[in-house]
Nucleic acid binder design. Structure first.
Lengths: 346, 346
DNA sequence: CTGAAAGCGCTAACAT
DNA sequence: ATGTTAGCGCTTTCAG
């Protein structure tokens, strides 16, 4: 009663061999019609479910993939997860979430899970590998790994991403086009490629507009709310504070706006703020945040597709897929006061 | 080279039996010292990892638990997940996330995963079971399931939760103590127990203060941003709109505040708003949201502990654990204008 | 088209 | 303290 039925039970009950049952249940097309239906029916009647451990052991596959992120607590990853999940399910795979908290030990643990058959492949979104460059090739041998959002130099892993530099430049150009001259940038953690690229984009846009980047205009944060607050405060202790801030992600932008309000400054009339990510809440935020929107669901979807192609041996080493971003102009950006005044004077 | 070493490889290389290797690697304490070290060393040298499918097949356990939620996209669950994960890891379990999107088919799928050995137990946070009441006992037989956050009448499953009615009453009493009389409540989806309890709490507090609940003061939403906006608008189309709103969750509260702003009403000077959940962003929101804080990490932790006790056969049927909530009073609530005026007149 | 038989890698009696 | 043996439930040759 409480015992789960096995393929043998069904075979016994129907007077056929276990092999036939297995074939029937896996739609191999090798079972003739009278038997086929009987087996299917019996399986349903007994509420039969194949034991995954047994199947995985035999087939040497787990039909699961691992999606590893820095911090499950960050809502940013959720929509990506949905994209991954939808595509994975479509192909018969389930998705496990891995959470590293930036801890190399845990990163290694998840790679171990690939080795021990927990999952067949991995979508890595942590922006780094837990080994030295020289070890990359050896450590990654035989593993199916796709990198998303970030990229990992020298790994030769296929990846899907956005062009962070171009997106950042566009965001800064928007501020410039509004008439801002003193534009600061709150960066992400700096040795990381993604943060560097966004800063590059900021610098490029500033340079092409002939604008100066004063000392202290590029404080470095960690993508968290608190650091947005702290760095914004820092910015307004400068002798010549900015009239606009391009923040490397929405969460720090929330923090920055919060701090500006504490300082008695209005957004956008005193200071304009642009974020990056377009989190779900950025639209309901006050003021609604102008920000760079990434096609998150699609990133997940494409990453999973790439992984599936890797399973099939169809992906190239270092294959790249780049998706387009959109600047969502909302209520946190406006013309600077001086410019507004000047315009009126004309 | 690319083949993963098995226990047999180690045994062969060292001239011992596979059983001994197994025992040595599982710290059974049954292997003598000269051999023990040699085996451990060899395992490390070969970068050996036990094959989980084989182990699970043999032990009839997967050492994994399933945490099933309505919507992974909701940041609310993330901190709970962290609590679950921390406790699970401590006990050697890994955590799989399941996402039902309120789809009974998918709910059933996750129960199937328990049956087929994908996981040993489940923490259910969807607030319902995908079967008719009569089937509960039969369907749940032999499965280890713990319910968190919500409760499922008639299932007899152990659960951990908060007292939604008391928490809601406290929130409304806060508004009453500020002097509000016309207090509305934006409800969650109503046949669901959690929403009903919160509404009960609202009604109790109103009644004990002798306050009236006019028609239209209890619009029903779905916990999503948009419905907060729409229902708030509806509320202010009434002939006698409220001066305060108790909203059944933070996300709808964000929407409501957004809408109030659109209507030209200031929060809190024109209208006070209280939420429920205390999401990460509620503090940085403008105005900082007064809301009911749930001990999310602890909920996760306790749910996992309860599940572990269920594995050990130590949990009682229908065992309940109730955790305390806290009302976080922030900037979205204030005395109503009329009252303020009256006070000044005195 | 179906059955018989082997074996995936591991652990747990049972022996010694 | 270690080895021998069997088998978890499934899939997949290989025969027929």
């Amino acid at each position: 009663m409480s015992e789960r039925p096995t393929i043998k039970d069904i075979a016994g009950k129907l007077g056929v061999s276990p092999a036939t049952v297995s074939r029937a249940l896996s739609d191999s097309g090798l079972v003739a019609e009278p038997t086929l239906s009987r087996i299917r029916e019996a399986a349903r009647a007994l509420n039969y479910r194949p034991n995954v451990s047994a199947r995985n052991l035999r087939t040497q596959r787990s039909m699961a993939v691992l999606m590893v992120v820095r911090d499950v607590g960050n809502p940013f990853y959720l929509e990506i997860l949905k994209g991954v999940e939808a595509t994975a399910r479509g192909a018969g795979y389930s998705v496990l979430m891995g959470n590293t908290e930036n801890d190399p030990e845990r990163e290694i643990e998840y790679f171990d899970m690939l080795r021990d058959g927990h999952a067949d492949g991995m979508i890595l979104m942590t922006g780094k590998l837990p080994w030295k460059h020289e070890e990359y090739a050896e450590r990654l041998a035989g593993l199916s790994v796709v990198v998303a959002l970030e990229m990992i130099g020298g790994s030769g892993l296929p990846h899907v991403q956005i062009d962070n530099a171009v997106a950042a430049s566009d965001a800064v150009r928007h501020l410039i086009s509004l008439g801002h001259k003193r534009i600061a940038h709150i960066c992400g953690p700096i040795p990381e490629i993604m943060s560097v690229r966004r800063r590059d984009g900021y610098r490029i846009a500033m340079k092409e507009a002939g604008l100066d980047i004063p000392a202290g205009y590029e404080p470095v944060g960690d993508y968290l709310l608190r650091s947005g607050e702290a760095l914004c405060q820092q910015l307004f202790e400068l002798t010549s504070p900015p009239t606009a801030i391009f923040v490397a992600n929405d969460e720090m932008a929330y923090g920055a706006i919060h701090e500006l309000r504490r300082l008695g400054l209005d957004v956008p009339s005193d200071v304009s703020v642009v974020g990056f990510d377009d989190l779900y809440l950025s639209e309901a935020f006050y003021p609604p945040l102008t920000t760079v929107s990434q096609p998150r669901a699609e990133i997940g979807q494409q990453a999973m597709k790439l992984l599936l192609r890797t399973f099939a041996g169809e992906s190239q080493a270092g294959e790249t897929m780049e998706l387009a971003t959109t600047l969502r102009i909302r209520g946190s950006t406006a013309r600077p006061k001086e410019t507004g005044a000047r315009v009126r004077t004309l």
